[in-house]
Write a protein that binds this DNA or RNA. Structure first.
Lengths: 205, 205
DNA sequence: CGGGATCCCTTAGGATACTG
DNA sequence: CAGTATCCTAAGGGATCCCG
């Protein structure tokens, strides 16, 4: 028995042996946004040591959670279908964790992939379906995302772009995703669309 | 910044800082079954060192996930409402983990609390609601549980007791919870009730 | 006896540098 | 760019001991 095994035969134990190691679910979180290269993962997890990232990627492959897909020359990591089944769990952790998150500490950063998952967590498909299709160019503590909402569909991509409204805010994204729009600066477009954003993205109380 | 922090401001990260440490979610799993004493937790997690259990209990208290309730003389640990919100996540991990669980290895055990959560994971309230109320006395690799199903309600308690049917099986509980009843020995009651059990408890494919 | 605390040792993880 | 290699620290594992 490996030292890291928990010694039990049970689903929870098994799941934790597969993805419960430190950094494991954060790698899954980022891969839920899309396939990523080694360097992109390292950028999204700034404090992960490179040897740990390499070790986790190997383990997650062996566990059948991710796979390497060598496309042309660059190596991409992506979730397997089994790994993608973790999405509701990761979003559930996100919901639960946000509830006890208070003000950001200075050294804490907001990465694009984490912000994308936060937006998915807060997304209200029913509310969105009742509103006109809208695109938002959001700057969250420096990370720029292009957010397109069309009916109950949400699409978030990195980088800037033209949108119906552009706004930016600091790291206090929990406020923004809870309907508190003080501190949001509109830099282009119709400021009234901010309300639509607040209706579309709302973390559970 | 604590060394164990991930350095990100985000819900998933926060959740993992609260309950993502080794053994953390297994303690939560067992407390989902009911309040437990220190020794009971230690019994249910046979490989956890006592200093780690003590440390985790302190951390989970500080995180607002569990609380001590000093009742008469004995100390009980129980989940706070915030901690109880983890139930769907733990059951989700259970579902996901069971999918890749293969045959039990010899040294792996099935504890009563883990088995109770496995039963909750597999429980089909809709199917149960359409069947008569039934009680099952199950022996799973030596751990005895009294399982009472009444409409869409499930109640599992430790220990033996009289039930409509009594059966026992080895550690291959994934088979039993997947409709494969070979290897199940009926020791009392109407063997035809086994089918009802199989309809009531069924892990997702 | 329940609820831990202490000790020692092993191993995983963090920081940094380096290589194909 | 995609990892290895190295060194060191801190967390976890195992056994034992302590205290009310």
């Amino acid at each position: 028995m490996a030292a890291r095994d928990y010694g039990q035969y049970d689903g929870v134990t098994r799941a934790l042996e597969l993805v419960g190691e430190r950094w494991g679910l954060l790698i899954v979180r980022d891969l839920l946004v899309g396939p990523r290269r080694y360097g992109e993962l390292a950028d999204g997890l700034p404090r992960i040591p490179s040897n740990i990232l390499a070790a986790r990627l190997k383990e997650l492959q062996a566990a059948g959670v991710i796979r390497r897909l060598p496309r042309s020359r660059i190596i991409l990591y992506e979730l397997t279908p089994y790994g993608r089944e973790l999405e509701p769990l990761v979003l559930g952790l996100s919901t639960w964790g946000f509830k006890s998150l208070d003000e950001p500490r200075g050294e804490q950063i907001v990465t694009p992939d984490a912000m994308t998952i936060a937006l998915r967590t807060a997304f209200q498909p029913d509310a969105a379906a009742a509103l006109p299709a809208t695109s938002y160019a959001g700057g969250f503590a420096g990370t720029e995302l292009l957010i397109r909402v069309d009916g109950p569909e949400l699409d978030v991509t990195g980088g800037e772009g033209t949108a119906d409204i552009a706004f930016e805010t600091d790291a206090r994204i929990k406020h923004v995703l809870s309907g508190d729009l003080t501190g949001v600066r509109v830099t282009a477009g119709d400021a009234r669309l901010l309300d639509r954003f607040a209706q579309t993205f709302r973390l559970a109380a």
